[in-house]
Amino acid sequence: MADQILQFLLTGITVGATYALVALGFAIIYNASDVVNFAQGEFVMIGAMSAVALSAGDGGLPMPVALLLAVLITVGVGVLLQRFAIAPARGASVVTTIIITIGASIFLRGVALLVWGKDIFALPAFSGDAPIHIGQATLLPQNLWVMGGAGLMVLGVHWFFGHTTIGKAVLACSCNRTAAHLVGINVGLMMLIAYGLSAFLGAMAGVLVAPITFTSYDAGVMLGLKGFAAAILGGMGNPMGAVAGGLLLGLIESLSAGLISSGYKDAIGFVILLLVLFFRPSGLFGRASVERV
C-alpha cells in the first residue's frame, strides 16, 4: 500500500508540475492587467507544435535549436497577440479583453489546424525513456525535466516581480494604470513584456510536457482549463499560489484516481476547487480583494 501511495504522489506531482507551469502564465498576465488570458493554453500548444515541426524529419533541426526557436516563435505570437488584438482595445473593460483572448484562442487553434493538420505528434524525451525506480514506484527522466523546469521558472518569475525594476513596473501597471503612466512607466511596453513572458512560460511548459503528453492542435484546450483551475485554486495573481494550486490539483486527481475512482477524479478535483472558492473566494494564497469606494 505504501508503494502505491508513493506512486500516486509521484504521478500527482508530475501532472501537477504541468498544471503549475500553465497556471504561472495565467498569473503573470493577470498581475499585469487583471485580465485572464484564455489563450494561455494555445501558447503551450504552439510551443510544443513548433518544436515538433522544427525537429521532425531528416532535415529537422537539432533538438536544442528547435526547442529554442519554438520558444521564440511562441514569444513572438504572444507579443503579436498583445499588439494587434489586446492593445487596440485599450479602453475596453476587463471582461471585454477576456472575451478578446477567448476569440484569440479559437483563432490560434484554427491557424494551428491549417498549418500542422489534425494529427497527434510526439516529441522525443530529452534524456531517454528508461524509468527511474524509487522503491516500487517509478518515474521518467522527462518528469524530472518538467519538475525542474517548473521549479526554475517559478523562482525566475518570483525574482522578476520582486527584484527587478521592469517586474515592479509591470506590477505597478496592474495596481493603477494611470498612476503608473504618470510616474513615467511605459504601460504599452510593460503589457508587451507581460504577454511575451507569459507566452515564454507557456512555450516552456509545452516543450517540457510534449514528450509525456503528446501534442495536437487542440492540446491547449484541456491544459488551459486545468491550468486556469490551478491558478484559481492557488489564488489568481500570486505566482507561488499558482504553483501550489497546480501541484495540489495534480495530487488530488492522482490520489482520487488511485484510491477512490478513476471515473470521478476530475469531478473530485472540481468539487474541491468549488469548496475552496466557497470558503476562500480569493483562492488559497490570494490576497483578499478590497473594493474602495
Binding site: 502505491q4 506512486q7 500516486f8 509521484l10 504521478t11 500527482g12 508530475t14 501532472v15 504541468t18 517509478t138 510536457v209 509525456i212 503528453t213 492540446a219 484546450v221 484541456m222 486527481e253 492522482s254 490520489l255 484516481a257 488511485g258 478513476s262 471515473g263 477524479k265 476530475d266
Partner: peptide, 20 residues
C-alpha cells in the same frame, strides 16, 4: 475496471491499482 479522461496525460495511478 478503470477509466481515464480523453485528455488525461498520465494513467500511472490507475495502472498502479491494476498492478496490485
Amino acid at each position: 475496471d478503470e477509466s481515464y479522461g480523453a485528455k488525461d496525460t498520465d494513467m500511472t495511478a490507475q495502472l498502479t491499482k491494476i498492478r496490485n
